[in-house]
Design a protein around this nucleic acid. Structure first.
Lengths: 190, 190
DNA sequence: CCACTAACGCAACGATCAGTGCGATAATTT
DNA sequence: AAATTATCGCACTGATCGTTGCGTTAGTGG
């Protein structure tokens, strides 16, 4: 959304300001509670004038959405281990590891609280990544579950535990999740 | 937490104020974006002086947690249809129906964004309810899945879709979820 | 029925925030 | 290289927020 403006003139300065502001948001969320995430505080941390932030992003909610989408897009590489199980275990394990970081969780929480579209922004391109993994398995000739089902039973429990439950969602647990899901998927298909 | 004070003197007025403030929070969240949920605004809507809210709850985050816990506790009756499938379908369907309401979603989002404990507050006594359903099935002599697994694969996808994905989590879909989960659970146990 | 005290309303204060012209700077174009 | 224009910094304003001290109201117990 803001990229439309940034692409008009992406010369060094705008990009620097954008990076500094993004970094300041992540940094502040890691330290202070979410309600302390005010525009003047962000601007001060980023070494930028508050007016700049007001003009470029308008509100803290839009800024948070911008930070989340760029933070959660392209952050995890889609693996290619040769098997569906290996790909899913590797990928979901990486996603789970990312969700282990308290700072990452703070960003997700704040983004969700910023508006109705905050949750989607936190997913980034997770669904595209999952779809790519499943598509690759099909191109191998293997039988793979539906993307929607995989998202529901893999990403669902993972994000549920990370956000709602107090239980930590470790990388090992994510691998168990994949095993359980694939076994159930096989059993039901037969 | 605040109940400890309220129980000291729960005579009419305190309870009235508490109810009015809770109602005002839900009402404001349904209309304005979350960042407009300021103490003076809540107090004005509740017909109460801002000082009162500051003194009783301290911050908007604690107030939101209080509202969420009392909103999501005891709001769904644990059914007793005679079968595990029936109980789960009925119960998860009710939970899903509740999550269909945009105002409810707004409350959940804001509560999550208010702090690390916000997510747990939004669950209320869901896990206790689920545990009660499963315990009852076991007391009938039936074989029921683990509570943790049920929470992961039932509540997980449901809340994931409601908060992160843009897809609506309807009551019908919740019933399908129960069927899929129980079938997979049976297949893996055999 | 009366004393007691918790809870609330009121008024004021300092601090901070969101927003607005205007000039300066730097990237882009001709 | 010069003109152009998007972007940023600065100074200023109005509004709102969070907080505190004090008086008043209304439940609670003797």
């Amino acid at each position: 959304m803001v990229d439309a403006q940034a692409q008009v003139r992406p010369g060094g300065r705008s990009a620097k300001v954008r990076a500094a502001v993004h970094h300041a948001v992540a940094q502040l969320l890691a330290e202070e509670p979410a309600e302390a995430l005010t525009i003047p505080a962000i601007a001060a941390r980023a070494g930028v004038h508050p007016t700049t932030v007001y003009r470029r992003w308008g509100s803290a909610a839009q800024l948070l959405g911008d930070v989340a989408t760029s933070r959660f897009s392209g952050d995890v590489v889609v693996p290619d281990t040769g098997t569906l199980t290996g790909d899913l275990e590797r990928w979901l394990g990486d996603v789970a590891t990312d969700l282990t970081d308290p700072d990452t969780l703070a960003l997700i929480r704040a983004t969700i609280g910023s508006g109705p579209d905050g949750g989607c922004a936190c997913l980034g391109d997770r669904h595209e990544q999952l779809s790519a993994i499943i598509e690759r398995e099909r191109s191998r000739g293997g039988r793979a579950p539906e993307v929607e089902h995989a998202a529901d039973f893999l990403l669902g429990p993972l994000y549920y535990r990370a956000i709602f439950s107090a239980q930590p969602a470790s990388s090992d647990w994510a691998r168990e999740l994949v095993a359980t899901f694939l076994a159930a998927s096989e059993a039901l298909a037969a």
